[in-house]
């Protein structure tokens, strides 16, 4: 059920992000969500794209270090307290969130949240039981 996320290693230097986006653009990939985590020396670019396989292939053939990870994608209400409610449920269930990023959706009044947790299955089960719609690769490709 989960969504495939692409992570790319990027040194902290000028032009590093552009290199990655240029490769994807060249390969005809549409980036649906994009976030960067950075340390003093390097960063990790995390993305949801419309075609993870082609994207991973293009990046690694250009010498980039890429990994594909299953993450939990969930649709929430784009209103005050929407994210907080979701995190409340996750926290109640004792799930530790490694990182997350959120972005508004093309669907009206809807936002998407990508969660990196240690146990995808349990998290998805809990979220489904709480009435959330989960993102899939298919939805990520077309609708978000």
């Amino acid at each position: 059920m989960s969504v495939r996320q692409l992570s790319v290693f990027a040194e902290n230097k000028q032009g590093s992000l552009y290199e990655t986006t240029a490769i994807l653009s060249e390969a005809g990939i549409n980036i649906r969500a994009f976030s960067v985590a950075d340390t003093n020396e390097y960063g990790v670019i995390r993305m949801i794209v419309d075609d993870p396989r082609t994207a991973a292939y293009s990046l690694s053939s250009e010498g980039k270090i890429v990994s594909v990870t299953d993450v939990v994608g969930v649709q929430i209400s784009d209103s005050q307290g929407g994210l907080s409610k979701l995190l409340g449920i996750v926290s109640q269930a004792g799930i530790n969130v490694e990182y997350l990023y959120a972005f508004v959706s093309s669907i009206p009044n809807t936002a998407n949240v990508v969660l990196r947790v240690s146990d995808n299955e349990t998290t998805e089960k809990i979220l489904r039981e709480s009435g959330y719609s989960l993102l899939t690769d298919e939805i990520a490709r077309t609708q978000i």
């Binding site: 340390t39 990790v44 270090i65 990994s67 490694e98």
Partner: peptide
């Protein structure tokens, strides 16, 4: 140089 084995999507793991 970074390698696929060393890389991870979480900074914590890399660290």
């Amino acid at each position: 140089e970074m390698t696929p084995e060393l890389f991870s999507d979480t900074i914590n793991t890399i660290e």
